[in-house]
Design a binder for these strands. Structure first.
Lengths: 203, 203
DNA sequence: ACGAGCATCACTCGAAAGGGTTACGGGGGG
DNA sequence: CCCCCCGTAACCCTTTCGAGTGATGCTCGT
């Protein structure tokens, strides 16, 4: 039973993809999920032969979802979907183990061809593109506090202001900041905010 | 001839929307565009009664597109489309003159109802939500240089590094930075990068 | 021809940020 | 039980930012 799982937070997009994938020869079942969390939750019970997942999703981003999925099941095949030229996100997802990516921009035919090929060849894999950092399998798993600090930064608040807001000392905020910089590989707060957006950690 | 213009950079989404809108009673023609630039370019030749436009588009963001469209034709009716909870973007778009917004998240029925209502009542307008800044009609029209500087920031580069990259003195970069901060209403580079992402100015 | 806006650069100054390091209590996993 | 990670906090020290101000040249539109 060849099953493909489509994961996208928008019902409109999800439905379109579901219908398109259903027409691929050999595909017998197309299931859908609305979030990375849902995919992970259901993976134990029902695995799929191929997962199409949006890079950009609220909550757990697509990149992080792939990472966790592959951590639990290294054999899972995932193709990332991307709206625009979200090269960073895609590169990171591929580095995290996604087999390839598709512009939603792709024509229906292109989409079907890619799905078809990925299903036919279990080892199929897009030639890795410019992956900025070779050891980029590491997860930017930020803690709750770190995300709060990152959000504060994305709203233009200084460390002192973030501290007041979260009832922390400025020094503590700086510690969280330093740690999240290291996790994200950011050189400063502006970079961290940018990476936060690209990873889907903040909006 | 009641015409609705659908603008989204993704063909898949665009087609889905086009088909959905076409089923709304009273709609006689649905045209599509793939970018804000295209909408503006074609507006002089062929106006539409209603525009559905994605907030998040490469190039000219949806927000800026609305602003420019309304600057040229204050009577234009625009409904913004948003993927996720891009509240900032939506708020800014509404402040810029969009009549309302739709989660792509919305059901087909909801979409049709909204389009129908907007067409029926030319004065229809969503109750303005939390618009963070009341005087937010101002455009974040960044110059090419300013965007280059903003992009540099989003890649974690210091002013000096951006200067070297663009063959400018650090002081010049700082001038561009200060100006773009003012335009965006940003308090620092991290905030500017965040706003850049929300406005769709950088990726 | 004039002003507006853009791009360029310089100088000062105070306020942040960021790196390094240390520390302590708590929770969870091996 | 011990170690690692998280959250909290502090200290030092250097670098960078960001605001303010002023100045010149260019181009475009009126």
């Amino acid at each position: 039973m060849t099953t493909v799982l489509v994961c996208d937070d928008s019902p409109l997009v999800r439905e379109t993809l579901r219908r398109a994938v259903a027409t691929v020869p050999g595909v017998e079942r197309v299931t859908t999920a609305t979030s990375g969390e849902e995919v992970l939750r259901r993976w134990g019970a029902e695995r799929s032969d191929l997962v199409l997942m949006d890079v950009r999703m609220p909550g757990l981003g697509g990149v992080e979802a792939v990472r966790r999925l592959l951590a639990g099941d290294p054999g899972a095949r995932v193709i990332m979907l991307t709206m625009a030229e979200d090269l960073d996100g895609v590169a990171l997802a591929v580095a995290a183990g996604a087999r390839g990516y598709l512009h939603k921009d792709a024509s229906r035919a292109e989409l079907r061809a890619t799905v078809s090929q990925a299903l036919a060849d279990p080892t199929w894999r897009l030639a890795p593109r410019r992956l900025r950092s070779p050891d980029m399998g590491v997860a930017p798993t930020l803690t709750a506090r770190e995300i709060q600090v990152l959000e504060g930064m994305s709203h233009g608040r200084s460390n002192a202001e973030i501290g007041r807001e979260l009832f922390l000392s400025e020094d503590t905020v700086k510690t969280h900041a330093r740690r999240l910089f290291k996790k994200l590989g950011a050189s400063d707060r502006a970079h961290a905010v940018a990476l936060g957006f690209r990873w889907g950690l903040v909006r």
